[in-house]
Amino acid sequence: MSARDLVAAVLDPELRVVTIEELGILRGVDERDGRVTVTITPTYSGCPAMDAIRADIAAALDAGGFRDVAVETALAQPWSTDWITAEGREKLAAAGIAPPAPATKVSLTLSVRCPRCGSPDTEELSRFGATACKALWRCRACREPFEQVKPL
């Protein structure tokens, strides 16, 4: 496998159903003179998963025979939930996590569909969830609580 394919398959440590590529945090994989330089970007400034992601990238490359690895962090352009791929969104929904609505500059409340029953009759329980990137919601139709990757 190419270095690019190995890195692209690394799973996000907190959203274990999507890869870092599907989540949109993989910026680039550059292979030059036997050295692989991977560039990633954080979802949130203080995302505590970054160290785990760096370690997972290094381990995946090591398993594929790439020993000389550097993982760099880039901040600009800032990550947006709009970078989550269509496949990533489908996988999140299938795992019971509502994918984010398009990130808009205007502050407006968009209906979030329940990832379990599909009803748009949902309510926000808390603007913050178990990780920085998620909020807590509840479905009024099937009564199930669920998480949402909040638009950023």
Partner: peptide, 13 residues
């Protein structure tokens, strides 16, 4: 959870 999350954002910055 909210205040801890905000603290984490501040720490990240």
């Amino acid at each position: 959870i909210a205040l801890a999350n905000i603290a984490l954002d501040q720490l990240g910055a």
